[in-house]
Computed example of a mutant assay.
Amino acid sequence: MRYTTLISAQELAARLSDPDWAVIDCRHDLASPDAGLLAYEAAHLPGARFAHLDRALSDKRPAPDGGFRGRHPLPAREAFIDTLRDWGVGDDTQVVAYDAQGGMFAARLWWMLRWVGHEAVAVLDGGLPAWQALGLPLSTELPRPPRGAIGLHPSLVETVDARQVLDNIARPTRVILDARAPDRFRGENETLDPVGGHIPGAKNRFFKDNLQADGRFKPAEQLRAELSALAPEGGAVIAQCGSGVTACHNLLAMEVAGMPGAALYPGSWSEWCADPARPVATGA
């Protein structure tokens, strides 16, 4: 059985020692970029490798053309494959990503594996808190897995760039779904990007609205009802956020809800607002 969206702590615990499984710790703090690594070194799921958002799941080097690609631009697909091999991932590996923030960062890794054509990847539902709530063990041992042999395969997902988003504003065919908090969407309390507001015509779906009070995802039927109210055409969606990270949480929620096919705008608001020629909207 392959897990392609979510996996429970109980299910993961039963397979944790399987050599064909790889668990990746994605904990991060945007305000303190080394906090996730420090937390990982203090204690993590047994056998888990660590994925740093800024170093493994992004490429912050200047773009070849000198342009700005947002705060968390994607690495080259080939470079990400090399990282996966360092983590011991092969074509037949079941990957499980987790964090302690309701999947806020783990969903980015989930999406990126699909981006390089690997379908057997799931997010630990409820993350580290769900694991600890069951009294399951943690470890301080740093694993050294043998190098994996995953190959680069056709992508299972779609990305769009700023030009395509601009075209969609002029001729709307897809719903633009913004995963940021409502105040940032309205253009209030912006602390991460130099301009407040949102892409004209976008709808707001705060990624935390995908979760229940215990940090686990809402049932598929509930997600489908809520997301369908925003995107009646199902997967005809462009997902974005501040920098292409929490938008992946909405993409995961759509997959759980049985609404596949949405695209990611990786540069998201941070790239969009960097060009004063691009239109900006504020308010609800």
Rank of each mutant, 00 (worst) to 15 (best):
F68W: 13
L30P: 04
D18Q: 12
C273H: 12
R184N: 05
C248K: 04
H153G: 12
A179R: 05
A130S: 02
A39Q: 15
N189V: 10
L109F: 00
A22N: 11
R71D: 14
R114V: 05
L16I: 12
L264Y: 03
A229W: 01
D193L: 02
P145G: 02
R216N: 06
G36L: 07
C26G: 08
L16D: 07
Y265V: 11
I7V: 15
G126W: 01
A51E: 01
L192K: 02
R15T: 13
K203N: 07
I199Y: 00
E78N: 11
F50M: 03
R69E: 14
G197M: 02
G102C: 06
W111G: 04
D209M: 14
W87N: 07
D86C: 14
W269C: 11
A253K: 03
P279A: 12
G126C: 04
Q222N: 09
A257W: 06
Q10A: 15
G235C: 00
V175G: 02
C241A: 01
K203I: 08
L38S: 13
A56R: 12
E190T: 12
D214E: 09
R69M: 09
V237Y: 01
F217R: 05
S243D: 08
H28R: 11
I176H: 04
G234Q: 04
G102V: 05
F217I: 04
Y98G: 04
H118S: 00
K218G: 05
P137S: 08
C26H: 08
R205Q: 14
G151K: 10
A284C: 13
F105N: 09
M1N: 10
V237T: 04
V95P: 06
I238C: 07
G283C: 08
R147D: 00
V280Y: 12
A107F: 02
Q132H: 07
R49W: 08
W21V: 15
R49H: 13
G197H: 02
A63R: 11
A130T: 04
Y3G: 09
N250D: 14
A274E: 06
A220M: 06
